[in-house]
Design a protein around this nucleic acid. Structure first.
Length: 720
DNA sequence: TCGTGTTGCAA
DNA sequence: TATTGCAACACGA
């Protein structure tokens, strides 16, 4: 009996270092995995062993790629019949054959395919004369990619330091210029600004580089969006590969350099965490930092052409150059501006909430006869449905549902329920808003949110750290939080929002004459709809009829089902069905639009906005009923939500450059999907209100008018 | 410490 | 069994 002892981790690590790098069909680097199988097969087929024992030692710190290979190794082995992982197995002809098969599966040709590798050479220089020479040479290139490698060095968002700049302007080389001595970020920024006048600048995540320089196309610009502008075809323009990759496929979770490199160049690249782990870049070897930065510059340089080609092929070049690229600068400017947030007022608000929260806590413990964590759905469920014996309705994956919707139905049965609901509402306001927002107020007394341009599937922008797009509005108590957001001394807020932009887009895209004329008839679209649907004169529409019509109007935009509508209105499915039937009789074009939207998306595999933005909908091809239904709702909604996003982006460009053109002091600071907020100078209030309404309304011309409401006030509560 | 589930805020 | 997001908290691996 001769047994081979195998340590899977060591086997892979050894192979990882000795086998040429190559990747599998899914883009994963699999050299270690392949090598491990190869070596195992060789050893076991030698006839020396009749059994083997596989184990996996404690994993020493290793790269993500190696970790992945270890996991996959274990999975593939486990799938082999007669194999125990970890544990002992015997060497049988079946096992040997299976190993051979697995090996072939990893590399179908039976050969090791060498993965493309970075071929650029790298130089590092901090000599001012040499750097001058480099920029001189770069200015002769039509395309230059750059990447600032940065590090956070303080609490505030502005506390960011550039360690160096990587440049790449040919396929063969890249250069890294550390920020040191005469080579300051201001110097590098100046050089890039100059360069941007004559060369196309390419980078990854351009919004993050605007803090160092402003490209010529922004510096010189004072005009708004021009649908017919094709000047990107022959004039040098900035190109952000991140935004390009997002437009090409907005469904991905992230678009790291690693990812772009694999997808567009086929070159695997270690992720930032794999290269640096938790070490500070400023204390890492300069060579390592330079190598990483240069790879990003190289990837940007090399992937820009295929990314652009794909944009051109799918008709999204104009969307990219005329909307997304200029927008990226506006988002940067808004983030930099920030919004003044009154620390003291927020603290007072939180303190007041706390008083009531503690009262409620006592009342809840008293009524339940025990103390427990009210914030834990698990514990709350046990108290309500087991200890107190309230009827449990909905179950979630992990137990009873204690969602507000469920508790509201339970409220009449026990006085504790109303207290729990109030407690939930108040703790939400305290933790997410009072305390949550306070943590983001920076040294300048402002909150600087991050606007993310490459997150949503539909083309909307999102806001994080903190999210300023979900500040309470619906309840008075919550809405009061808006009073802590104020303009600077003497200034006011001007807040403009589109009136029912999505429904208007539906009217336009469906071409339904009834819906279109409803918008020309008057401003209360829900009442008009109720009047038409229920066949009553406009003046006799009851509040209930209006409410129902409004719910259907909203639901239609989301691709509602009769079940969904019944839930929303707390009516029977039959009644909901009836409402929808009547709605479609009133606006037959809406139904045919929805059918068309679904069919189109099924045929093409994606949905499209008025401005050509695409959203792939792979769910439509799914065999899973629920998934397919979801795909159909997405197909109905995405063109509408996406078109609204496009229109708002165009409006932002028009507003921003108009303010610049007219040399105003007022500044755009927030976007909340259909709403813009401007911190407005006192002598510019009328002008700014006029600009907002005018530019937002004329951003696009549809079959129905765009209506914009604008309010001003001395805080966000007042202005809304 | 990190990922997942539940809950709830906005358009 | 309504679209798109972000975030707090609990809890278990």
């Amino acid at each position: 009996m001769n047994k081979l002892v195998i340590d899977g981790v060591k086997l892979i690590s050894d192979a990882y270092d000795s086998v040429p790098v190559f990747t599998g069909a899914d883009g994963h680097q699999i050299n270690g995995l392949y090598g491990a199988f190869y070596k195992m097969k060789e050893l076991l087929s030698s006839g020396t062993y009749d059994g083997f024992d596989i184990s996996f030692s404690e994993q020493a710190p290793c790269t993500e790629s190696v970790k992945w290979q270890i996991t996959r190794f274990s999975e593939l082995l486990s799938a082999i019949n007669g194999m125990t992982v970890p544990g002992e197995s015997s060497v049988t002809p079946d096992v040997l054959a299976a190993l051979e098969e697995t090996l072939k599966g990893l590399s179908p040709s039976g050969k090791v395919v060498e993965t493309p590798k970075f071929k650029h050479s790298m130089t590092i220089t901090s000599d001012l004369n040499e750097v001058e020479e480099i920029f001189k040479k770069a200015s002769g290139a039509s395309t230059v990619s750059y990447y600032f490698i940065t590090e956070k060095e303080g609490k505030d968002k502005s506390d960011i330091k550039a360690l160096g700049l990587a440049l790449c302007f040919d396929e063969a080389s890249a250069v890294y210029i550390p920020v040191v001595n005469f080579i300051t970020t201001a110097y590098l920024g100046q050089k890039l600004s100059e360069l941007s006048g004559g060369s196309s600048l390419v980078t990854f995540d351009i919004k993050e580089s605007y803090r160092f320089f402003t490209p010529a196309e922004i510096t010189d610009r004072v005009s708004g969006y021009d649908a017919g502008d094709m000047s990107f075809a022959d004039k040098p323009r900035c190109f952000d590969v991140l935004i390009g990759a997002y437009l090409n496929n907005p469904l991905k979770n992230d678009y790291e350099p690693w990812d772009i490199s694999t997808e567009y160049l086929g070159i695997p690249m270690a992720r930032k965490a794999d290269v640096f782990g938790k070490e500070l870049l400023s204390s890492s070897a300069e060579e390592k930092v330079a190598d990483y930065a240069c790879k990003i510059a190289y990837i940007s340089f090399a992937s820009a052409p295929p990314i652009r080609a794909k944009l051109a092929k799918t008709g999204m070049e104009k969307l990219f150059y005329n909307v997304e690229m200029p927008l990226s600068y506006i988002l940067y400017a808004m983030e930099k501006e920030g919004i003044i947030t009154r620390r003291d007022a927020l603290k007072d608000y939180g303190d007041k909430l706390l008083v009531r929260i503690e009262e409620l806590e006592k009342a809840i413990y008293g009524a339940s006869g025990c103390t427990f964590n009210i914030n834990s759905p698990k514990q709350l469920g046990e108290v309500l449905f087991e200890k107190l014996g309230l009827p449990a309705e909905k179950k979630t994956k992990s137990g009873y549902s204690t969602a507000a919707e469920v508790l509201e139905k339970l409220a009449p049965q026990h006085k504790i329920v109303a207290d729990i609901l109030e407690y939930r509402g108040l703790t939400k306001l305290k933790s997410t808003y009072a305390d949550g927002l306070a943590a983001f107020i920076e040294k300048d007394d402002r909150i600087h949110t991050s606007f993310n341009q490459t997150i949503t599937a539909t083309g909307r922008i999102s806001s994080t750290e903190p999210n300023l797009q979900n500040i309470p509005m619906r309840t008075e108590l919550g809405r009061l939080i808006r009073k802590v957001f104020v303009p600077k001394d003497g200034y006011v807020f001007a807040d403009a929002d589109y009136s029912q932009i999505e429904l208007r887009i539906l009217a336009h895209m469906s071409g339904d004459q009834g819906l279109i004329s409803a918008y020309h008839e008057g401003d209360d679209i829900h009442a008009i709809t109720a009047s038409k649907v229920f066949h009553v004169p406009f003046s006799e529409v009851t509040p209930l009829q209006r409410r129902n019509a409004k719910a259907v109007n909203f639901g239609i935009v989301y691709g509602i089902s009769s079940f969904g509508l019944s839930q929303d209105l707390s009516i029977s499915v039959g009644e909901a069905k009836d409402y929808m039937e009547k709605y479609f009789e009133t606006y037959p074009g809406v139904r045919s639009y929805q059918d068309r939207a679904i069919q189109d998306a099924k045929d093409k595999g994606y949905s499209e906005t008025l401005f050509g933005r695409r959203r792939p909908i792979p769910e439509l091809k799914s065999g899973n009923y629920n998934l397919k239904q979801f795909g159909e709702r997405v197909a109905m909604n995405a063109p509408i939500q996406g078109t609204a996003a496009d229109i708002m982006k165009i409006a932002m460009i028009n507003v921003y450059f108009r303010i610049k053109r007219e040399n105003l002091k007022s500044r755009l600071i927030l976007q909340i999907h259909d709403e813009l907020v401007i911190e407005t100078a006192p002598d510019e209030v009328e002008k700014v209100s006029e600009i907002l309404v005018e530019e937002m309304e004329k951003a696009v011309t549809l079959a129905v008018p765009m209506e914009v409401d604008c309010h001003t006030g001395s805080d966000w509560y007042e202005a809304k």
